[in-house]
Simulated scan of single mutants.
Amino acid sequence: MSRRTALFLLGFGIWSWIIWITFVKNLWASDNSWAPDGSATGFFVVHLILAIVSFVLGTIIGVIGWRGLRTKRRAKVDA
């Protein structure tokens, strides 16, 4: 993996966390997320699942990028 690709993947993982944290905060505050009795609506549940999946994928992609960068650094040290 090239350094450029590794940096892109790491950056995407970080960006994904920033974006989805903001999304979850806005989702939590939305009137559409809660029924009058205080329970979560279907809108909230679906979007929370979407956010959780995105956190997981962002983490996996970021870890792949981080490992790619570490591999490049180790290759330079060993050379």
Rank of each mutant, 00 (worst) to 15 (best):
V63Y: 03
L27T: 09
S54K: 08
T22N: 12
I18E: 01
W28R: 11
G42V: 12
T22K: 11
W34R: 05
S33H: 01
L27W: 05
N26D: 15
N26Q: 15
T22G: 12
P36F: 04
V46P: 02
V53Y: 09
I49E: 11
N32W: 13
S16C: 09
T22D: 11
F55N: 05
V46S: 15
D31N: 13
W20A: 01
S39F: 07
S16N: 14
I18G: 05
A29R: 14
W34G: 04
N32G: 06
F23M: 05
I18F: 09
N32A: 11
F43C: 04
A40C: 01
I64R: 02
W28L: 14
K25F: 13
T22V: 10
P36E: 07
W28V: 13
P36V: 03
I61Y: 09
I19L: 13
S33C: 02
S33K: 00
G58A: 10
S54C: 08
G62W: 04
I18T: 14
V56Q: 04
G58C: 08
V53W: 09
V56T: 09
A40S: 14
W34V: 10
K25S: 14
D31W: 04
S33E: 06
L27H: 07
S30G: 10
A35I: 00
W34H: 07
N26L: 12
I52Y: 04
L48A: 11
V56Y: 13
P36A: 06
W34M: 01
F43D: 01
G58R: 11
A35R: 10
A35N: 10
P36L: 08
V24S: 06
L48N: 12
F23L: 00
G42C: 06
V24Y: 04
L48Y: 12
S16L: 10
I49F: 12
T41K: 04
S33L: 01
N26C: 07
V45N: 12
V24E: 14
G58V: 08
D37H: 09
W17E: 10
I18N: 02
L57Q: 04
K25D: 15
S54H: 09
W34Y: 11
D31Y: 05
F44M: 15
F43Y: 15
I18M: 11
D31Q: 13
G65E: 03
A29K: 13
L57F: 10
V53H: 11
F55C: 00
D37Q: 08
V45I: 15
I52Q: 11
T41E: 03
G58E: 07
V24C: 06
V63N: 00
T59A: 10
G62Q: 05
V45G: 02
I64D: 01
A51T: 03
W28T: 10
I49G: 06
V24A: 09
L50V: 07
G38V: 10
G42Q: 15
G62L: 05
F23N: 03
I60Y: 08
I60R: 01
P36T: 01
H47K: 10
G65P: 01
I18P: 04
I19N: 13
N32H: 12
L57S: 07
F44V: 08
I18Q: 05
N32T: 10
G65F: 00
T41H: 00
T41A: 08
F23K: 02
F43E: 02
I49C: 04
I61P: 03
W34C: 00
W20S: 05
